[in-house]
Write a protein that binds this DNA or RNA. Sequence first.
DNA 1: ACCGTAGCTGCAGACAGTGCAGATTTGCAC
DNA 2: GTGCAAATCTGCACTGTCTGCAGCTACGGT
Lengths: 241, 241
Amino acid sequence: MVTEIGRRDRKRLSTHWRLRSAALRLVAEHGLSQVTVEEIAEAADVSIRTFFNHFPSKEDVIIGLDPGLVEHLAEALAARPATEAPLVALRAVLGELTAQMMDRDQEWTLRMEVLHRYPALIPRAFAAFATYERALAEVIGMRTQTDPDSDLYPALTTAVAFGVLRAVVMSWRGGERASDLPGLLDDAFARVSAGLPAPNAGHPSRRGRKAAAPPGPDGGARLVEPAGLGRATAHLVGSAK
Amino acid sequence: MVTEIGRRDRKRLSTHWRLRSAALRLVAEHGLSQVTVEEIAEAADVSIRTFFNHFPSKEDVIIGLDPGLVEHLAEALAARPATEAPLVALRAVLGELTAQMMDRDQEWTLRMEVLHRYPALIPRAFAAFATYERALAEVIGMRTQTDPDSDLYPALTTAVAFGVLRAVVMSWRGGERASDLPGLLDDAFARVSAGLPAPNAGHPSRRGRKAAAPPGPDGGARLVEPAGLGRATAHLVGSAK
DNA sequence: ACCGTAGCTGCAGACAGTGCAGATTTGCAC
DNA sequence: GTGCAAATCTGCACTGTCTGCAGCTACGGT
């Protein structure tokens, strides 16, 4: 299963990685607007022109994701069994995605640091997700034989799924503490499937990843009525794998 | 209730509107990259410098929303009765937002045309929503006495709500046919609260805005098992007003 | 009538991003 | 190993975005 690639591709990937690494390091240290493309290229030991041969814009080197990932996700979704409910399939694919993110832990940790330090970048990161979301909505449309242009269903479904993903990823700060991203995603999907029960103030959820329903009516002051999308139907969203 | 504003503010608003109008018209006709800021400024009869006094970037004149809207939405959400469930409050505020969009129908119709003709702009539009989403997540955090940094709940809730909003707005093409945006939003929220039932191929939903549950098991070929977030609990999301 | 302020303007300049052409390196066939 | 096609890297010229600054004008309040 070892993918054979030649010297040329290896060099290209090396350049790609050096640019990305240098950019993340420099921007984390000095801020996005303080770092020029020239400095990034210099740090990666390539020309400015080469930078733009690899990344269409300065921001893409920070938040842009891997080339070909869109196609990969679309194929992964299409490859899920046809009997699987759309949200289950989406959950599985996104779970795979987060697993890949964990594989490159340090890169993502640095990226999230930058993102949180310079919140102006966050919308751009969201925009990156939007590209994947649209591609997967297409696939959902095929799976359910629904025309994405005439029916809301595919867009609505992927919007919810990616809403969960975005919320989870943004809340996640890599590195040491509790950085089990796929686990967090599981938690979040479970909470949504349980109808988004309101949390108890001061008790950040420490329940297991199954997010079992609270044993009984808690005694805490309830400032709002319990918000919910509906009752738990765990099997519909539940552990896809 | 008529808001008194002086000549200065009127002129400023006039400039703002002329720039926006000119930009939308020119970009709709020639494409984003074919239109320069200089041409937009020229069409609005102001200097280039003035353009950038009103909009921080070229794209903002197309997809950027109104100044002060973030604060307005945050206040509107905070003003909802404290007993209201978060999703109900969010649904109400977003309904108000879509109603405002309908008030400026032609502007939004043109904007959506541009967006669909140049899909590269879509992520940018999503990015605009992200700003509002973050602001409202803060308010939800206050309402539920939840720290948005330590608990997923506010981000998760707003992510779902804005997911619905984005899906609806993107599916909406203004103009003549069936452009009741608040109604579509109602539909979408209802479908999510009903657990995202899979649509029947070839039968785009034509039900009323109440999105009542289908009378019985439909006979259509079911390629996937019904996907759901949970059972309908209409009162939790239902008509806030 | 006076003054402080806010918007409009031109100018200089840094920086992002593109098209083009030439040099170099790689993969592959002969 | 020789030759060739393709891909990458590179420098260069150029357009366009966006910012800081300083001067001007128009407005609003006193």
